[in-house]
Structures are given as C-alpha cells and as structure tokens.
C-alpha cells in the first residue's frame, strides 16, 4: 500500500514538471491576435533633454505621443517638443523658434540635420548655453532615433562652423560622445 502511495506521488510530480516544461516552451496563441493590432496607431514615449536650471547638466523628460511615421516627422516632432520647452523641471535651451527644414540619414548612421535660421540667429548666451543647446539636440536625437550614430548640424541649408563661437559644429557629432 505504501509503495503504491509513493509511486503515485512520484508520478504526480513528474506529470507536474512535464506540464510546467511544456507551458514554458509552448508558443503562445495570443501572438496571432497581435497582428490585428498592427494597423492601429501606437503610443510611444519620446525622451527629451532640456537644460538644468543651474546650467550644470541636462534633465530628461518623457512624453507620450502618437507614433510618427517617417524620419522627417519623427525628428520634426522631437525638435518641436524641445522648442516648446519642459513641462516639469528644466529650461528650454534650444534657441526659440528652431525647427527642422530637412533631415537625411545615410546607411552608415550619419544624420544631416538642417535647422531653420532661428537656430543661429536667435542664439543668445555663452559656452554653457551653447554646450547644452547642442547636447540637448544630440541626446534627444540619440535617445529617440537609434539609427542615428552621428549628427551633422547645418543651418538653413548651409554648413555652420559654430553656433555662438564656443563649440565647433563643422563636423558630425558622435551621438555616443554625449552620454
């Protein structure tokens, strides 16, 4: 009687383990149902970087938006949000009225970002303002457009040597250099 009882327990345990294993590796049927979701608009968090009030660093802010399709729309939306400024702490460091004219991204990850003339004309400040304006832009693009590895900022269709005379902008900036 005892042997039978122990045997039943062992069989039950083995069955339970086999059941767990099969559940662990089974393909879930709910995957198929997600196909129907693909046509709907999704919500995406965009991560924006603004200047800290004391000028020391950047502060991050997350916003949920309806996902934009296409590179131009995505980058335009990001720069527009940066221009609108933070909803919480921090300050807008991008020169007021800056917008995106054109964006190009090659297959090596080099993004050419053509900004409106306001980017240069309305810049006021010293090296800290310039550093944080560029950092805000590069970090925001880096966080939301992972395909971009380098960003070359140009203004109104023309290359610019610098924004305010403190940092060179004549070369593409590595996104990974602005962690």
């Amino acid at each position: 009687m005892r042997r039978v009882f122990i045997g039943l327990i062992v069989v039950a345990v083995l069955a339970w383990l086999a059941h767990s294993w099969s559940r662990h590796s089974v393909r879930s049927p709910i995957l198929d149902a997600t196909v129907a979701d693909s046509g709907a608009a999704g919500v995406k968090a965009m991560k924006l970087f603004f200047g800290a009030a004391n000028g020391d660093s950047l502060v991050a802010e997350s916003r949920e938006v309806i996902e934009a399709t296409g590179l131009h729309d995505r980058v335009t939306g990001l720069v527009a949000e940066l221009d609108r400024g933070p909803r919480a702490r921090g300050v807008a460091v991008l020169p007021a009225g800056t917008s995106v004219l054109r964006v190009f991204l090659d297959n090596r990850g080099l993004m050419i970002l053509d900004l409106s003339g306001a980017f240069r004309q309305r810049f006021r400040g010293g090296a800290s303002a310039e550093y944080l304006a560029v950092a805000s832009l590069i970090r925001t693009i880096g966080a939301n457009v992972p395909e971009a590895k380098q960003v070359l900022i140009i203004c109104a269709g023309r290359p610019i040597a610098t924004l305010g005379g403190h940092l060179p902008l004549d070369r593409p900036l590595d996104v990974s250099d602005w962690p």
Binding site: A53, N54, G55, R124, G125, G126, A127, S128, A129, H166
Partner: peptide, 17 residues
C-alpha cells in the same frame, strides 16, 4: 577668456572647457 550667459538666472559661476 570668456564670460558666460545662460537662459536661467540661477546658473552662475565659472566653467572651463
């Protein structure tokens, strides 16, 4: 030699690059 300027008056002090 420069003097700095920032968008918020709380930012103060010196910075070296």
């Amino acid at each position: 030699i420069h003097f700095d300027g920032y968008v918020d008056p709380h930012a103060r002090g010196a910075t070296a690059f």
